Simulated assay, not measured.
Amino acid sequence: MPKYVDHEGRRTEIVEATWRLIAERGIEEATMRAISESLDMANGALKYYFPDKNSIIRAAFEHVVAATNARVRERVGEATGLAALRAFCVEMAPLTELTKLEARVVLPFWQRALSDPDLERLHTDSVTLLRAHIVEFLQQARAEGTVRASTPDDVLADQLLAMLIGLQALALLDQDGTGEAAQLRMIDAFLDSLA
C-alpha cells in the first residue's frame, strides 16, 4: 500500500524550517541544501514543493506576514480606536523573541524585493493592508473623540508605518538602545501626540 504524504503539511514544515533558518543564520545561508538538511530530506525532494529558493523565501515571508496578521487580530480583538491602534503597534513591534526572529526574515526580504518585481508586489500588498488597518483605527478614534490631530490620517498612517518598520531594524541592530521599554515609549509617545 502506498505511503500517504500530507503534501500541504510537508509544505508548511518546509516554510517553517526556512523562516527559522533565515532568522537564525541569514538569508544567504538558507540554501536549498541547508533547508533540506534541516528537515532530513533529500535536496531534490524540495523541488517537488518549491521550484527555487525565491519561491521558498516568498512563502517564508508570506508565513511571517500571515502569522503577524493573525496575532494582530487576536490582540486587537473587539478593541477600536486608539486601544486597537496600540494593540496593533505592540504586536507589530519586535518586542518578543518571536517577533525579533520574524524581523530577521523581513529585513533581508526587503533587500531581495528591491530587485524582484514579484517580491516587491508582495511587500507592497502587505504594507497596503497594514496602512488600511491603521487608517481604520484612526478613523474610529476620531469618531470616539480620542484623536484630534490636524494631520490627515493617511499621513499619520505613513508616519506610524515608518516608525514600526524602523523599529524592526533598530531592535535588531541596536538591542541595548532599542529594547522593549524604549520601543513601548516610542509607540506611546506617538499615540499620545494624536490627542
Rank of each mutant, 00 (worst) to 15 (best):
Y4S: 10
D6P: 11
E8F: 06
E8S: 10
R11Y: 07
E13A: 15
I14N: 02
V15M: 02
T18R: 01
T18E: 01
W19R: 05
R20F: 06
E28Y: 10
E29P: 02
R33L: 08
R33G: 08
A34D: 01
A34T: 00
I35T: 00
I35N: 01
I35H: 00
S36R: 01
E37K: 03
E37Y: 03
S38H: 02
L39T: 02
L39K: 02
D40S: 15
D40V: 12
M41C: 02
A45P: 00
Y48L: 09
Y48V: 11
F50W: 00
F50S: 01
F50N: 00
I57E: 01
I57N: 00
R58F: 07
A59Q: 02
F61E: 04
H63P: 06
A66M: 09
T68R: 11
T68M: 13
N69M: 15
A70G: 12
R71C: 09
R71E: 12
E78I: 14
T80S: 15
G81H: 05
G81P: 06
G81W: 05
A84Y: 02
L85V: 07
C89Y: 04
C89M: 05
C89D: 05
V90M: 10
V90D: 05
V90W: 03
E91T: 14
P94C: 03
L95T: 06
L95I: 08
L95G: 07
T96E: 05
T96S: 12
E97T: 12
T99C: 09
K100L: 14
K100P: 04
L101K: 12
E102P: 03
A103E: 00
R104Q: 04
R104L: 03
V105K: 01
W110K: 12
W110S: 14
R112G: 10
P117L: 05
L119V: 09
H123N: 14
D125P: 07
T128A: 15
T128Q: 11
R131Y: 11
H133M: 12
I134S: 06
I134A: 08
V135W: 01
L138F: 03
Q139Y: 13
A143V: 10
E144R: 09
E144H: 10
R148I: 14
R148M: 14
A149Q: 08
P152F: 07
D154R: 09
M163Y: 07
I165S: 13
I165N: 13
G166W: 02
G166K: 03
L167V: 06
L167T: 04
Q168E: 12
A169R: 13
L170A: 09
L170K: 05
D174M: 10
D174Y: 10
Q175A: 15
G177T: 04
Q183H: 06
R185T: 14
R185V: 15
I187H: 03
D188L: 07
D188G: 11
F190D: 03
A195L: 14
A195F: 13
